[in-house]
């Protein structure tokens, strides 16, 4: 297994300021580290990877790593990634996006990328809140939980991101937490190898805003909570829906093969060229 020092030497940009900007105990660094370990285990070339992000705490992730990176506008990581993938289909395109970035500002882009089944791996860092801007509630803030813009409790029901992307047509959906680091690595590996649109939802913790406002304790307490509520899919399948209340099912939730967008687009180009050539007076 690659050690932290090797990881830093091999994958980090050495002209960036460290330690990174994330708060003490924030799970984003953990997820980034395990994503890099998954990439290292697959022995992918750094130049063959494009890492795209939007805005927010998660949006800072590509800034630190030495891949082909794109730090785009709020919620628009997936449209930029879609254009990139169509122009350079040989690249492995990874998208890092937060819960607000993916499901609020970029909500439409997320469901339509799922529907198209374009070969992009999207990692959604779900910490239930907008951390960088001061703890406003996001579409995944649980009902009744507090945020700086809902001091008396959230009256909206949250999105279940995995169910949302499944319904929208994603062909690979995995969910895990920042506590379950080895499962996180395995799911990211499988998501990268999957041909089609893959989503990995990672439940993580924001001790500075969500944890503090909701009195969930420090980063250690929030990780212990993740350990308690997570249930592997193999166990959850044998349980009654009532037993699963308040639990988070982790593991690979959906995996299926359907025609991929770039391949179908190539077929359309070929069909259009054949049509043009077969017409009288068409180019030869």
């Amino acid at each position: 297994m690659i050690s932290n020092s090797q990881l830093v030497n091999k994958y980090f940009r050495h002209n960036k300021k460290f330690p990174h900007i994330w708060c003490p105990g924030c799970g984003i660094g953990t997820i980034l580290g395990n994503m890099l370990r998954a990439i290292d285990a697959l022995a992918l070339d750094k130049n063959d990877i494009a890492f795209v992000s939007g805005i927010g705490c998660t949006g800072r992730a590509p800034v630190y790593v030495d891949f082909n990176t794109l730090h785009t506008t709020h919620g628009r990581a997936l449209p930029f990634a879609t254009g990139l993938k169509l122009a350079r289909p040989e690249l492995k395109v990874l998208v890092a996006t937060g819960d607000g970035d993916a499901t609020a500002i970029g909500g439409n882009h997320l469901i339509h990328a799922c529907r198209r089944n374009i070969d992009i791996t999207t990692i959604i860092f779900n910490n239930y809140i907008y951390g960088m801007t001061g703890g406003q509630y996001s579409p995944t803030t649980p009902h009744g939980d507090k945020a700086s813009t809902c001091k008396l409790g959230n009256i909206e029901r949250p999105f279940n991101i995995s169910q949302l992307v499944e319904a929208a047509g994603a062909t690979f959906v995995g969910r895990t937490t920042s506590y379950h680091t080895l499962q996180l690595q395995n799911i990211i590996k499988k998501a990268i190898l999957h041909k089609g649109f893959s989503v990995v939802e990672v439940i993580t913790h924001c001790p500075t805003t969500y944890g503090r406002i909701n009195k969930k304790g420090n980063a250690v307490d929030m990780l212990k909570w993740q350990k308690e509520v997570a249930i592997d899919k193999s166990r959850a399948d044998k349980m009654e829906p009532k037993e699963l209340e308040g639990k988070i099912v982790t593991g690979i939730l959906i995996e299926k093969q359907l025609p991929e967008f770039c391949e179908q687009y190539d077929n359309i180009i070929e069909a259009a060229q054949n049509l043009k050539n077969s017409k009288p007076g068409g180019s030869k």
Binding site: S3, N4, L7, H20, G29, T30, G33, R37, T181, L182
Partner: peptide, 14 residues
Amino acid sequence: HMCELRCPDFAINV
């Protein structure tokens, strides 16, 4: 290596 895998700051090496 659980400390290494969970450290958010890449600050421990085993």
